[in-house]
Structure formats: C-alpha cells, structure tokens
Computed example of a mutant assay.
Amino acid sequence: MKVGILALQGAFIEHEKIIQELGVEVVEIRQRKDLEGIDGLILPGGESTVQGKLLRQLGLLKPIQQLINEGLPVLATCAGLILLAKTIDQEETAHLGTLPIVIKRNAYGRQLASFDSDIDMRSIGHYPAIFIRAPYIESVSDDVDILSVVNNHIVAVQYHHQIGLSFHPELTHDTRIHQYFLSLIQPSSQSS
C-alpha cells in the first residue's frame, strides 16, 4: 500500500510521520508523476488558496480530481477539506469540487480563535480535535454522512471514499482517524 500526501504547502510532514508509523509507504505529491501507483491521498491543512493555485499551476488539479472521482480514498483536513468542497461560501469557484458540501472558510476566526475540543466522532468515538483557523461545513447533500458536529457546526463528514475534517488529526498522538482512512484503502490496494 502506498499513500500520497500533497506536499505543496502546509502540514504534510505531520501526516507523513503518522502514516509511516502505521507501517505504510508514503510518497510526497509535488508533480504529476508522483500520483502513479498511489492507493490513497491525504490533502493536508495549510492555505487552501495557495494550495489550489499551485495545483492548477503544476497541472495536478484535473488528474487528482479524476483519481478521486474514480474512487481513490482521500483524507482531507482543514485546507484540504476546502479543496474538496463543491461549494465555498462567498466564493465563485471551487478547487477539486468532489465533495458535495458547502464550506465556510476561516469560520472560527483568526489563528487566536483556534481551540481544542473533545469531540464525538462516528466510527471513532471520543477524539481530541485541534481546530486552527478552521472552516466548518454549512450544509451537505443527502448522501454525505455527518461524522461529527461541534457547537451545531458540521466538522467531519464522509462521502463514499472521501473523509473531510475541519480539524487537524495529524497534530495529536491519536492515530485512529488515520487508521480508519487506511482501512478504506486496504480493499482496493489488494488488487494493485
């Protein structure tokens, strides 16, 4: 099994360390050829506008979008969730647009408004979530599963093979979310 981690900007190293600790091969995605042979993809936190711009400049946007639409499992955190969203509140264009949700960027305010919260997450249980300039999900289509809600805001969803989180599981010592993501990959990687 091999997991690609978008490594253009943001908190990709932290995800990489966790995936390697779980015994899985990692490749940093910086150009199109890096996408070859990956069984799953992580879109990390960071600056979604910068990441989206770089995806377009490097010719990665359409190939990643196609892989996701073909069933590639994805874990997207914070900015990565914004990249996946079909609609970004008060913005005309989306990036990958593969996740049928409406997202509100920087919904919790500036960096100083960052916070930790012990959330209840379906399929995981209690989880120590870290929110940093986090977005939240304003609405979802009927076929999107809501995994967690904090203060009446949706902060975690799953849509088939796509997991989207407003928070940063890579900044905790709890690997359960990454393990859950890897469990989505295992059936498809058997055929690779």
Rank of each mutant, 00 (worst) to 15 (best):
E28M: 13
Y159L: 07
V150A: 12
A129Q: 12
S48G: 08
P187Y: 02
L81S: 09
T87P: 00
R176E: 07
I130C: 15
L147F: 08
L61A: 11
V140K: 07
T98D: 06
I177K: 00
I5Y: 01
K104R: 13
L6S: 02
L61R: 12
R105E: 04
S114R: 13
E25S: 11
E28H: 15
S123F: 14
L81W: 01
V3P: 11
G4E: 11
Q162Y: 02
S123C: 10
I42M: 14
A113I: 01
R30T: 11
K17I: 09
I82R: 02
Q90E: 12
E14I: 01
Q186Y: 04
G125Y: 01
Q158A: 09
G4C: 10
L41C: 11
L147G: 10
A107V: 11
S141G: 11
G97I: 01
L83P: 04
T93L: 03
P169L: 04
R56T: 15
V157W: 03
Q111S: 09
N106E: 10
G164C: 08
R56N: 13
I64G: 04
K33F: 04
D34H: 15
T93V: 03
N152R: 14
N152V: 00
Q162A: 06
G52F: 07
I19L: 11
E16Y: 05
P63V: 15
L147D: 09
L75P: 07
V50S: 15
G40M: 11
A113D: 13
G23W: 05
Q31I: 14
I19P: 08
A11G: 09
H178W: 03
Q57F: 14
Y108W: 13
T87A: 00
E14L: 05
P73R: 03
P73E: 07
Q190T: 03
S117I: 12
K104W: 03
H168N: 04
V26W: 12
S192L: 04
Q9G: 05
E21N: 15
P73A: 07
Q111K: 10
I132M: 10
V3F: 06
E14V: 00
P44G: 08
D142L: 12
G97M: 02
G46I: 01
V102T: 15
P128C: 13
T87M: 00
D39F: 01
H95E: 06
S166K: 01
I137F: 14
Q190C: 01
H168I: 10
I119N: 06
S189I: 00
P63T: 15
I124R: 02
Q186L: 06
L81E: 01
L96C: 00
F131N: 15
K33G: 07
K86M: 03
L84Q: 03
S141R: 09
M121E: 08
I103H: 02
D118T: 14
D120P: 00
P128S: 13
D145E: 15
R105Y: 01
T49E: 13
E92T: 06
Q65I: 01
I163F: 02
N151I: 05
Y127K: 10
S191C: 00
